[in-house]
Computed example of a mutant assay.
Amino acid sequence: MKALVKQIGMTGMAVLMLLTHVAGAAPAVHADHPRIGTHAQAAALIDVESGRILYSHNGDKPMLIASLTKVMTAIVAIEHGNLEDEVTVGRNAVGKEGSSIYLKLGEKMSLENLLYGLMLRSGNDAATAIAEHVGGSIEGFAFLMNQKAEEIGMTNSHFVNPHGLDAKDHYASANDMAKLTAYALRNKSFRQIVSTKVKKAPNPHEDWDYVWHNKNKMLRFYDGADGVKTGYTKAAGRCLISSATQGGRQLAVVTLNDGNDWLDHRHVLDWGFQYFPHRTLIKRGSAIQGTGLRAAADFSYPLVEEERSELSSSVETLDEKSLDYRLGKRGELVIKLRGEVIGRVPLLAADDPVWQEEKQVAASAGMSSGAGSYQQTLTALVRALFTGETR
């Protein structure tokens, strides 16, 4: 349906003029930004919004990940299960070795509360109960985990259980876990669970509620910390994923087998926030030189100062017979860093009625022009196309 018929190159000075114009107000960083390191055998830092890995050490090496596995368990359960489901605890869950929330045989608990027990207290019994409920069996749930890993692009990972106890063919890489974390943190329910410091849940066996305190110390010791998971086995060593949001930006760090993980995470997060600011590379409404097209959306990306000179872009136009073209879209601005695509921005014709409509709306509301979104544009165009209504 999307037939590209033409590419207009925009490299060298042309793209630099465009990108510098819209990003000029971004905070400057030193060209010789310092290197960062950790005590971990493998580590990765990722920008959650863009998915860009900002730092990696042995990032593609498959390793034991202990209870970091539960990040995958949680997101698969959230996506495939119903949080309001009542889960009955079976024999395989009761007394599961390692960390536990001490579930009893036949006990009933909502899937949502089990997920809190899973992520705050790292309950291996909770992991097993969740897996059997959502996947029908441990093997069935592991299939869903590996299916999700493939979907996300985790090429150096494989899962055989939901809890992370050491097992043959159960492993992941730091880069893969960073990708998974960024994916999971875009889910509202997941974000809510992993950012919770203390959770109470009904206890059918006692007169008092379960009270679970989050094991993730970063939630108390780092400004803006908002997740995600601790992990440890003797073979895997200390494993940790932490996330934090500052100035509207969210970063996540993964360390595998790191004896000084709390301090390392503070330093890596500080480094990422300082040296990789989000820079606006194109603004909605910006004219694309020599094309008669305008950007239909903003696009920003985490970059160090010296990477500006390594940006390039090209315009891909659409076949006039395609549905997107009929709906008003004329192509995409493809933005690259060192030749690799980092983003695609939809383009509309410079004389598209939407720009005039936006000016009129902005003027009547006392606002600056450029408000709105590509989705709003499409809605207006579909309405006009199929109903003739242009309001």
Rank of each mutant, 00 (worst) to 15 (best):
K2L: 13
K6H: 08
I8E: 01
M10T: 10
M17Q: 14
V29R: 10
R35H: 14
A42F: 09
A43S: 13
I46Y: 07
N58D: 09
T69L: 07
T69I: 13
V71Y: 03
A74W: 11
I75G: 07
E84V: 10
E97Q: 13
S100M: 08
L105W: 13
K108Q: 13
I138E: 02
F143S: 14
F143G: 12
L144V: 04
I152W: 02
S157E: 07
A167F: 03
D169E: 13
Y171H: 15
D176V: 00
A178R: 03
K188D: 14
Q192L: 14
T196A: 10
H205Q: 12
D209H: 08
Y210K: 10
K217D: 09
L219G: 05
Y222Q: 01
T230C: 04
K234Q: 15
A235V: 01
A236I: 01
S243G: 05
A244N: 01
Q250D: 02
A252H: 03
D258I: 04
Q274L: 14
Q274C: 08
Y275S: 08
S286C: 10
T291A: 04
D298N: 10
S300Q: 05
S313E: 09
S314V: 08
L318I: 04
G328Y: 03
G328A: 02
R330A: 04
K336D: 07
P353W: 14
Q356Y: 13
A362G: 03
S368A: 14
S369E: 11
S369N: 11
F386P: 11
T390N: 09
